[in-house]
Design a protein around this nucleic acid. Structure first.
Lengths: 202, 202
DNA sequence: ACCTGAACACCGTTCAAGT
DNA sequence: ACCTGAACACCGTTCAAGT
């Protein structure tokens, strides 16, 4: 058998990514397999390897789209005329809401390990950087005398904190229940950190 | 074939856990398999299932031992007569050092997902709680007027932050290099958070 | 009683062979 | 040129059969 040409290469590519996203949403990272993706789009496993290098490549491209959606949502949910401090909090809340709406897809960004021989692709780093940049931009008007380097550090420290709360809550390692408690804890972290960072307490 | 009785059940149990720890240290969570563990201790796969419920059970027991070692190390590296704030920083540094010395074994604690039908075992929660308790104890003498509930929140927020930095650094998502930068970022987070939390800036 | 080895239902990846 | 299907080397888990 062979030669169907029902779909172009680009169509198969897109169908596979969508199917993979659905599987991850429903069954998590561990539930994803090349055979399942192929089955879901009505092709054989071999076909996937005409369109992707391998399963890692497919996962990377799913993660890329997830990072794009996350970034877009964080941007969109910013109320333009709110004070900088409130907008910073909104970023945290957006991040947590996103993670909570699709925990598996969000989680795969961080669960997936790049094969040790090859390092993290540059474009992937850029997409992560882009998120820190969002935080830095909101931090800047609040930072007073702090240097650009200190602002960059603050963005990384603060965002690692938000991420840490998020991942521990979602994997059920924190002893708190419900999304609102997570939002509350995030606000608590950000409030205290910002109080320390902004005013010259130190 | 069969009937060797070279080792008692307990010995096989211990040998399997040790072998698993070695495999995880060298090849990571993804490199662990029942067949590899069995091969490493000179038994067949089937034998493992006389001693463990399944691979999840084995992983859980490895993680349990890792949590014990982590807790012991954090306790041990506390200098008893240092001021509370310094001891709090030491906890963070211990945590990061531990993660950095054996990233795969530390990482498996958080990468492993419990099967969705059964919830997190109670004894596992206890071991995680125990770590937060360590942080709370150091936080208490610094907390002034804060309520016990606020101290508990602060411990969770702060430790999530340390954990977040740790996991992003180890999986190469932060754009910083080397352990000392990670320690520096942790100190930066803790300093600012504590300044905000302790003094009545807010 | 203790352990094996083969079986079952799954993997990722490759590639000769079909249309 | 496009896609298949079978193959290879792996999985976790079970269990009849051997000593």
């Amino acid at each position: 058998m062979a030669r169907r040409s029902d779909h172009s290469r680009e169509e198969i590519h897109e169908m596979a990514l969508s199917a993979a996203e659905k599987i991850v949403r429903e069954q998590g990272y561990g539930g994803l397999s090349a055979r399942k993706v192929a089955g879901a789009i009505g092709y054989t496993v071999g076909t996937l390897y005409l369109v992707f290098d391998n399963l890692d490549d497919l996962i990377l491209q799913v993660n890329s789209r997830t990072l794009d959606r996350l970034h877009a949502q964080m941007l969109q949910e910013q109320s333009a005329h709110a004070p900088a401090r409130e907008r910073l909090l909104q970023l945290g809340h957006s991040y947590i809401r996103f993670a909570n709406e699709d925990p598996h897809r969000w989680g795969m960004i961080f669960e997936h390990r790049f094969p040790p021989e090859q390092e993290t692709p540059a474009w992937f780093r850029v997409k992560v950087e882009r998120m820190f940049a969002l935080v830095e931009a909101r931090l800047e008007p609040l930072a007073g005398e702090h240097s650009a380097n200190e602002i960059a550090q603050a963005a990384r420290a603060l965002w690692s904190g938000v991420h840490g709360i998020c991942i521990l809550a979602i994997t059920d390692r924190l002893d708190i229940a419900g999304v609102s408690s997570v939002q509350q804890l995030t606000q608590f972290l950000m409030d205290n950190f910002l109080d320390g960072f902004i005013s010259g307490c130190n």
